[in-house]
Design a protein around this nucleic acid. Structure first.
Lengths: 347, 347
DNA sequence: CGTTGCGATGTTAGCGCTAACATCGTTTTA
DNA sequence: TAAAACGATGTTAGCGCTAACATCGCAACG
């Protein structure tokens, strides 16, 4: 007996049905089975039926990890946001998800908690998953992250704000939104206007809105006092913001809040305190969340098209993925989704 | 020249730095480099430093797809929820995410839109990614989905509600929560109570709360009229719900809403209509969202510990993953996170 | 002082799938 | 009618990594 030393190395094979087994059951080769599932039009109708029947009968579940490795395409879309506590990001994610999932892409969601170092780590992980594209909130990243993204050859979409980005960009002008609301408050005749921001050191889009606001006030020869809260926007924080604005500037006649959560929190709190809005104090927000339009008085705010932003961003990415265009060649890389001043009765 | 026919078959290799290149640069074998990254304690200190230096220098990003295929472990956690529009699920996801990400797991999020067929497709996809565990909302799945999950050998966690599940379970008793609020309304003296539900055909947890509610009312000899809305809970829908309740049952003295979004929408709408809450009409909700505690009058509701539910679910799954226990052997498979009646001034 | 044990590293063989090329019979084209 | 084109399927060779086993040098031990 010539010892045909059969290798006995054992792997704890996952015991799952493989494509090869499906192929055998259908009497074809593995690649034909693969084609029947991935590019059905390239397989003869009867053969395909035989294969699909075997898939069904054996309960085959494709191993997507193996498929991705072999093709170096994963159909993952990395989505990085700074927070899940803010409804704004949820709505953008929703827009992204609906559009991407309809095309068979799966979202990989990451949350940075407004930490750029964390963003870098997430990007590294996501690149490791051979994502088809990456969507991230904002135009600011740390150097390491920029380095990775610049040399990456897949679409990178930066959403929420507008400006010169790495690749694709869909967003709105936060600076302009801040200016817009400040103009509105001045037009209404308010002259002692306090801005209340939350975590503006980390949320620089909020800081941009404030700087738009400040510039308008200063151009009108007015001071632009700021109350900074050390926690993220919430109804609770809004109440605190109002109290602090009133305490620090007793003469205040209008408060411009960084977002609608704060503003509505303040509005409800004002009512509890017996303050009339807008007679005693005017209140303005940013975002245009539904909630602001259901309170009485309705909140004056700046409406941002959030789900649209997600949908449009996804569409732009898909367009690039389909055409497989080079980053540099692609036309129309920047999209302004704009904003709308929504005047309620709170100002 | 013996033509040593070198195979010329070309793959469009991703041009990425591979572990092998790192290993060469550090003068070790690939497996040692792999160990330096994954199980650093098994590599000599100086060797490890040399490898890490090469990783840094070359800008190596590990290919997680390849790693997962080789090890058949992906460190993915599949999370399936029926909706992103509802803050409840966002908070559960948040709790899950914080706990899992701290342990180096990545969440794969899927949204079924309350469609069990869609859930089955998501489960198939996620199993194809060799997820380490799967977390899904609810105990009801279609047959195909149950089949897949039953024969899967990794932890399955069913959250939100309580009952006999496939494997692990963390949740609360929705039937009991419905009973609890109904009792409260009876105690308060209301006798003409309408229940307003949203999409109860699809959201069967809502249906369970209603059936608890109905049973209590019927036991007290009262009818339990139901107003069903054909859209998901929102402030808008709550306003509609109130209008319909009043139109269909002019004698109504209390409305038990399916969730806080509806209830708050109704409360704000009542105020716009000039109805006093609770004098003209009492309003109750379910969930204990912060919003309900910021309106005046504060909303009477049932508080569910949502982030805790996510956190606890993640902890239970991690415990199983760490100990690698068999499904059948694991102790304490079911956890009741309970609920609390939160009495505001709206009832 | 041979043997055992152990820590550090290497060799080999896949994980399950698909890109690239090959083959073959049939159809279209010049 | 030979050549080119095409549609359907197969063969081969990886994708980049890690499990399992192998090796080697050195310390511990009876």
């Amino acid at each position: 007996m010539s010892s045909r030393k059969e290798p006995t190395r054992q792997r704890r094979g996952s015991e799952q049905i493989t494509l090869k087994q499906v192929a055998e059951a259908a009497g074809v080769s593995a690649i034909t089975a693969s084609r029947a599932l991935n590019t059905p039009e390239r397989v003869n109708d009867t053969t395909r039926e035989r294969i699909l029947e075997a898939v069904e009968r054996l309960g085959y579940v494709p191993n997507l990890v193996a498929g991705s490795l072999a093709s170096s395409r994963s159909r993952f879309i990395a989505v990085i946001v700074p927070s899940l506590a803010n409804a704004v990001f949820i709505e953008v994610i929703h827009g992204l998800q609906e559009t991407f999932e309809a095309q068979g892409y799966q979202i990989l969601l990451g949350n940075t908690d407004y930490d750029l170092q964390r963003e870098y780590q997430l990007v590294r992980t996501f690149l490791g998953w051979s994502c088809s594209a990456l969507v991230t909130a904002g135009l600011r990243h740390n150097e390491a992250c920029l380095g990775l993204l610049r040399q990456w050859d897949k679409p990178v979409m930066e959403v929420m704000e507008l400006g010169e980005g790495l690749d694709l960009n869909v967003g709105l002008d936060h600076y302009g939104a801040g200016r817009c609301m400040a103009h509105h408050l001045l037009e209404r005749g308010y002259r002692s206007i306090v801005y209340v921001g939350a975590c503006m050191d980390r949320d620089y889009r909020a800081a941009m809105r404030f700087s738009g606001h400040r510039e308008v006030l200063e151009a009108a020869g007015l001071p632009a006092p700021l109350v900074e809260l050390q926690r993220l926007g919430s109804l609770e924080a809004g109440a605190e913001g109002l109290d602090r604005a009133l305490a620090e500037r007793p003469e205040v006649d209008a408060v411009h809040f960084d977002n609608d959560d704060l503003a509505v929190g303040a509005l409800l709190h004002a009512q509890r305190r017996g303050l009339r809005v807008p007679e005693d104090i005017a209140i303005a927000g940013f975002n245009g969340l539904p909630l602001g339009q259901h309170v009485t008085p309705r909140l004056t705010t700046v409406l941002s098209p959030r789900e649209t932003m997600g949908r449009l961003a996804a569409e732009q990415v898909l367009k690039r993925l389909e055409n497989d265009l080079d980053r540099a060649l692609a036309p129309q890389r920047q999209h302004d989704v704009g904003f709308t001043l929504l005047v309620g009765e709170s100002t």
